[in-house]
């Protein structure tokens, strides 16, 4: 027993917060299976959570990187809407091909990263204000590109959207007694690849380590010879690029363009990062945690809606309560660390 408690004490902040997140996710999922019945036992329920939240996973990865570096970016939801709308207009009215629409998405992301990163890193303007204006701009631009929401009819795009990748060995028997294979959409594969890539980037590359260094303590990072401005710039660049990709994945999931798309996605992304153990103060965080943060968040949403509390307001209240709990946990961890330093 004492061994366990010592291990608990020796854990780094990242490790501790990550463990809490993963444990909470599994407890919640088991709770859902116990109390909500067999719906949650079907593999497809889990994969549907992934399908619906692939874009959020990508957005949250970018958000975590910015938050680890000590910044914040609330423009990601707006960028998602802008990417969806631009690609939708391009594919339908201009009759463009799918590959070019992907380039548009990445282009929008890069342009956003360039401007926001420059303003934050080199002009030293608060990231919150810059990305606030970025969010305003993206939402406004979306309606300027096209006011009315519409579904994309482009054939090759629809074919890509409906592509389903069957998960081998998983499946369930449906109401008619037929065995149905579990499937995921392409977006999920993209999201998983990005999670792995970003995990490797943060753990083993020089850039990734300097994100942590700058977020942890700017002064000492500077003394270590890290180019703080460039690191900040890169974090925003990466976040906006991921927002562009995430926007395209979102577009691939919904298949339409609308100004109201991804409303509140930035808040969900921030919430998932926090639940996943990324500290707002910077320097602490983990992409795997973020991944589980998104899963926890969406599982809660699923539980709320399947419990018959269908009103949108219950979702808001539960997410807020969860966010509150995790923030308090973080603050306790911080206090613990400070006490340890004093000793």
């Amino acid at each position: 027993m004492s061994n366990i408690s010592r291990k608990f004490k020796d854990m780094t902040d990242t490790g501790l917060l990550l463990t809490i997140t993963i444990v909470v996710f599994f407890l919640m999922y088991i709770g859902a299976i116990v109390f909500q019945g067999k719906g949650f036992l079907k593999p497809q329920t889990f994969f549907n959570i992934l399908n619906a939240n692939a874009a959020l996973i990508i957005l949250a990865c970018g958000m975590s990187i910015v938050m680890i570096t000590g910044g914040i970016d609330i423009s990601v939801g707006g960028v998602t809407a802008l990417v969806s709308m631009s690609c939708a207009v391009y594919l339908d009215y201009k009759g463009g091909n799918v590959a070019a629409s992907m380039l548009i998405a990445i282009g929008i992301g890069l342009a956003y990263g360039l401007v926001q990163g420059f303003l934050v890193a080199y002009l030293d303007i608060q990231p919150f204000i810059v990305s606030l204006a970025g969010m305003f701009f993206a939402r406004g631009m979306t309606t300027i590109v096209n006011t009315n929401p519409f579904n994309v009819q482009n054939e090759s795009f629809v074919a890509l959207k409906d592509t389903r990748i069957i998960v081998p060995g998983m499946g369930s028997v449906n109401k008619l007694g037929k065995y149905v294979n579990a499937y995921v959409e392409i977006g999920v594969i993209v999201a998983l690849i990005i999670v792995i890539l970003m995990f490797c980037l943060l753990r083993w590359t020089k850039l990734g380590r300097s994100f942590y260094a700058v977020g942890g303590n700017k002064q000492s990072a500077l003394m270590l010879g890290i180019n703080v401005k460039r690191t900040k710039f890169m974090s925003h660049m990466l976040c906006s690029l991921l927002a562009g990709i995430g926007g395209y994945v979102y577009f691939l999931h919904v298949g339409s363009g609308a100004a109201t798309h991804a409303q509140g996605a930035e808040m969900n992304a921030i919430a998932s990062s926090i639940i996943g153990g990324t500290m707002l103060t910077g320097g602490v965080g983990n992409i795997i945690g973020t991944f589980f943060g998104v899963l926890s968040l969406s599982t809660i949403q699923n539980i709320v809606s399947s419990a018959g509390l269908d009103q949108a307001w219950w979702t808001g209240i539960t997410i807020a309560a969860m966010l509150c709990i995790f923030l308090v946990i973080q603050s306790v961890v911080m206090a613990r660390k400070k006490r340890a330093v004093k000793k």
Partner: peptide, 23 residues
């Protein structure tokens, strides 16, 4: 149009913060 309003506001805001930035 009221939906497009944020885009213009954003441009003004960015100009303002850029000019008032200490750098």
């Amino acid at each position: 149009p009221s939906d497009a309003l944020p885009a213009y506001k954003a441009v003004v805001v960015i100009l303002l913060v850029v000019f008032s930035a200490p750098v």
